[in-house]
Nucleic acid binder design. Structure first.
Length: 807
DNA sequence: CGGAGCGGGATTTTT
DNA sequence: TCCCGCTCCG
């Protein structure tokens, strides 16, 4: 008999023949007969209620460590098992690719290979892309549109600013990019941006620039990240038939981390979840208002606070039974977060032990802070604890360096989560730009990026010439380049370099269907001289970059073709480390959300740093509350031990500042927190820290770090350096493996040449004007190429499309 | 084109 | 204080 988890559209007729109709009475009776399935029995009563409430809107308020993902995945399995919907009728959205991947894996583990049949499980952006591609023409795009990343976006905005004669010193492109992003996050198209805001940029030009930028995107058949959602929203809003189709299709909607949704995401969800005449929609949002920490990038906690108003009659479940932390840790976290107003209110509890009290310790400065943490880690090691189970969670990334330096000294292996992200690394961006040029010859931004990387002598001037002509011809740069190398627009050296490059691209593009895409990528990187460039580079990180490139090529194997890979890469950005030896993790509090460790170190609890001054200045009370939630997230990451530190002196922007302890410290419950006295009494004393340093140095002959150094000799140090270099390594994800193959629209090279050849309107003797060479007389015509005797520049061969009749 | 020298800015970060 | 990006100059 057909496995109910394996159903998908193609199975449909067979399934109908072989078993009860999904969702039919027989199927439901069958499910009821079997009693509650095992996966449901393993849940606690609240979790079970959340899983089994299958009619109407459900809000699951899931506190930290209460089994949120478990509920989400079990609910999906349950929906399918009971025949309420099939895998492809469930929309499940997450924020990160990592979360989506994890969910797929866990559903797979729970219910067999059903995850493969869940085409609508993914991030907001990947699902937005998918829908947008299917109906691109309805919003003025072609299905093969490219997705610009932040860097491309800024470059494009810069061009817009230049075209509109806006001084980009006074009004930086970056700033406009932030504004536009913000507007898109709030679901605002150019016309709907509030006048006051639109006018604030570039003396009232804000709206026009936004509008112009959108038009440029359309011309390039491109979208930015914000568009994936905003255009997706517009699509559904303006096309009721399309909307109805998706409303019918998605019998169940599940949303992870609902507290992090921004306005567009909210509007998009609300549209899809709207009652379509046949009863309440089955939307289930899971989240924790106490862990909303992304307000600064457009997330709106109010979305979750408002849920019951948006979806009247919603069933609300609170998950408060915590399976992660000890009693003291939960008590400390609860007392802290209780200082926030406007929460839905939850109190975590555990059946477990009280455990150790969270510790608060003052230190002299950040150096001592790092030293004390380092010693504590080594002590933990001596007790047999794993480095994998320890993490240092900082407010701001500049705090990391001190710890890294200390750990290198100690030879303590560590990893930094979320350093410069993999896809943002220059070498990866360059490599991807090459591949984009091969797959999408009209991708001007990609071409611009690599045209002179490695150096080919095609600098700013050459690029400008190319740009001028591309604009005149309204053609992509690469197509223009092919024409321009036939003429004398460029200096011979540059012309030759450009021709060589174009020949390369022709060769590579020709192989796109015949050569495996990872081999093609390897070939491109080799033959373009790009690999060579890094091999010749003697800087410290060149080796790492080559490693990254290899990893990139390796990761391509998982995708059916180049198009699918590029699509995936434009959506993915998450960084993890390869396995190897055990390491302590260092990361920001933001990056720590969703993770847990036995021991968590929380340094830098000082006014101005945490809560961060800027959050207070810019967001006032709501900023403070978000900082407090961040503190709550930090404390609740700990299973057994939370150790909080504050320094009396900290160097901020090169200036030493005396700091005062964070207000959050006083918001912790006194009877659940231990205040650590320092044995050496160095705290607060001038020079005492030096004494302490000697003291700890003296005792360090017995530390694991010292022993490591003894047993491994220089290798120990090398490994620490390796850990340093590895900062922010990554792992590849298989998330896009199922995305259908696609590629930009095929371009027929040379079509332009043929067209203009027949249209040559210049006879010998015609007076013409050329952008670069000025006025001249046509000497002879050969197809679309003209030989012109220029008054100033002499005799040159140019393309006819580059000149116009002199007036 | 590439290097030196200068000025401004410096949380958090995913897609 | 340090780092990045831009400008200017060789």
């Amino acid at each position: 008999m057909t496995d109910p988890f394996n159903l998908d559209e193609s199975d449909l007729p067979a399934a109908r023949a072989a078993g009860p109709r999904p969702g039919g009475i027989a199927a439901r009776a069958q499910a009821a007969m079997a009693g509650a399935p095992r996966y449901v029995e393993a849940l606690n009563p609240e979790q079970r209620a959340a899983v089994e409430a299958l009619d109407g809107p459900v809000l699951v308020l899931a506190g930290a460590g209460t089994g949120k993902t478990r509920v989400l995945t079990t609910r999906i399995a349950h929906i399918i098992a009971t025949g309420r919907a099939r895998a492809h009728e469930i929309l499940a959205v997450t924020f990160t690719n990592k979360a989506a991947r994890e969910m797929k894996e866990r559903i797979g583990a729970l219910a067999g290979p059903v995850a493969e049949g869940m085409p609508w499980l993914g991030t907001f952006h990947s699902i937005g892309t998918k829908i947008l591609r299917l109906h691109a023409e309805l919003v003025g795009l072609k299905s093969g549109f490219t997705i610009l990343d932040t860097d491309d976006q800024i470059r494009l905005i810069k061009q817009v600013l230049q075209a509109e004669n806006v001084d980009d010193k006074r009004w930086p492109a970056r700033q406009l990019a932030i504004l536009i992003d913000g507007w898109k996050n709030r679901g605002l198209e150019p016309a709907r941006v509030p006048a006051g805001e639109a006018e604030a940029f570039a003396n009232g030009k804000g709206r026009a620039l936004y509008d112009f930028y959108q038009r440029r995107l359309k011309q390039l058949n491109a979208v930015d990240f914000g568009d994936l959602l905003l255009e997706g929203l517009r699509l559904l809003r303006d096309n009721p038939d399309v909307l109805a189709e998706y409303q019918r299709r998605f019998r169940y909607i599940l949303v992870d981390e609902y507290q992090d949704t921004n306005t567009v995401q909210y509007l998009w969800l609300r549209l899809l979840a709207q009652a379509a005449g046949d009863g309440p929609r089955n939307i289930c949002c899971v989240g924790d208002d106490d862990q909303a920490i992304y307000g600064w990038r457009g997330a709106d906690v109010d979305n979750i606070l408002r849920f019951e108003k948006d979806f009247p009659g919603a069933f609300v479940v609170r998950l408060e039974r915590n399976y992660r932390s000890t009693g003291h840790i939960l008590a400390a976290a609860a007392h802290l977060i209780a200082h926030n107003e406007g929460r839905l209110g939850k109190t975590l509890f555990t059946d477990g032990d009280d455990g150790e009290m969270p510790a608060v310790q003052g230190v002299w400065d950040s150096e001592e802070e790092a030293r004390v943490v380092g010693e504590d880690i080594e002590q933990g090691q001596r007790r047999g604890e794993s480095l994998e189970e320890m993490a240092i969670l900082v407010r701001a990334s500049f705090q990391m360096r001190e710890f890294e330096e200390r750990f290198i000294t100690l030879g303590l292996p560590y990893r930094v989560i979320g350093g410069p992200r993999f896809y943002e690394r220059a070498e990866i961006r360059d490599a991807l730009a090459y591949l984009r040029c091969v797959a999408q010859p009209a991708d001007d931004l990609a071409f611009e990026r690599i045209v002179n990387t490695p150096k080919r002598g095609l600098g700013e001037a050459a690029l400008q010439t190319l740009h001028d002509h591309a604009r005149r011809m309204e053609a992509p740069l690469m197509r223009t380049a092919r024409l321009i190398v036939e003429t004398e627009e460029l200096k011979p050296k540059q012309r030759q370099a450009l021709r060589a490059l174009m020949d390369d691209f022709d060769r590579w593009s020709a192989l796109i269907d015949s050569k495996p895409h990872n081999e093609l990528a390897e070939m491109v990187l080799e033959e373009s001289g790009y690999v060579d460039m890094w091999q010749k580079d003697r800087s410290a990180d060149a080796a790492g970059r080559l490693e990254n490139l290899k990893e990139l090529v390796r990761s391509m194997e998982e995708f059916p073709d180049l198009g699918a890979f590029l699509e995936h890469i434009s959506l993915v950005m998450d960084a993890e480390n390869a396995e190897g030896e055990e390491r302590v993790s260092i990361m920001t509090l933001h990056a720590a959300k969703g993770l847990e460790f036995d021991t968590v170190y929380l340094p830098g609890w000082e006014e101005g740093l945490f809560p961060h001054q800027r959050a207070l200045d810019e967001q006032g009370r709501s900023g403070l509350e978000e900082e407090r939630r961040l503190a709550y997230v930090g404390v609740t990451r700990a299973r057994k031990r939370a150790k909080i530190f504050f320094a009396t002196n900290r160097r901020i922007r090169g200036l030493w500042q005396t700091t005062i302890p964070s207000r959050f410290l006083d918001e912790l419950p006194a009877d659940h927190v231990e205040v650590v006295e320092q044995a050496s009494a160095s705290y607060g004393g001038y020079g005492a820290s030096r004494f302490n340093a000697l003291d700890s140095f003296g005792s360090s002959y017995d530390t694991p770090g010292w022993r490591r150094a003894q047993t491994r000799g220089p290798a120990g140090a090398a490994s620490a350096a390796g850990a340093y270099a590895e900062r922010g390594g990554y792992s590849r994800g298989a998330q896009g493996a199922s995305s259908p193959a696609r590629r930009g629209p095929a371009t027929i090279e040379g079509e332009l040449v043929a067209k203009s050849a027949s249209a040559s309107a210049y006879a010998a003797g015609t007076r013409v004007f050329h952008l670069k060479f000025g006025n001249g007389s046509v000497v002879s015509v050969e197809g679309n190429k003209l030989t012109v005797e220029f008054d100033k520049a002499g005799r040159k061969m140019v393309l006819d499309s580059f000149v116009e009749k002199a007036g």
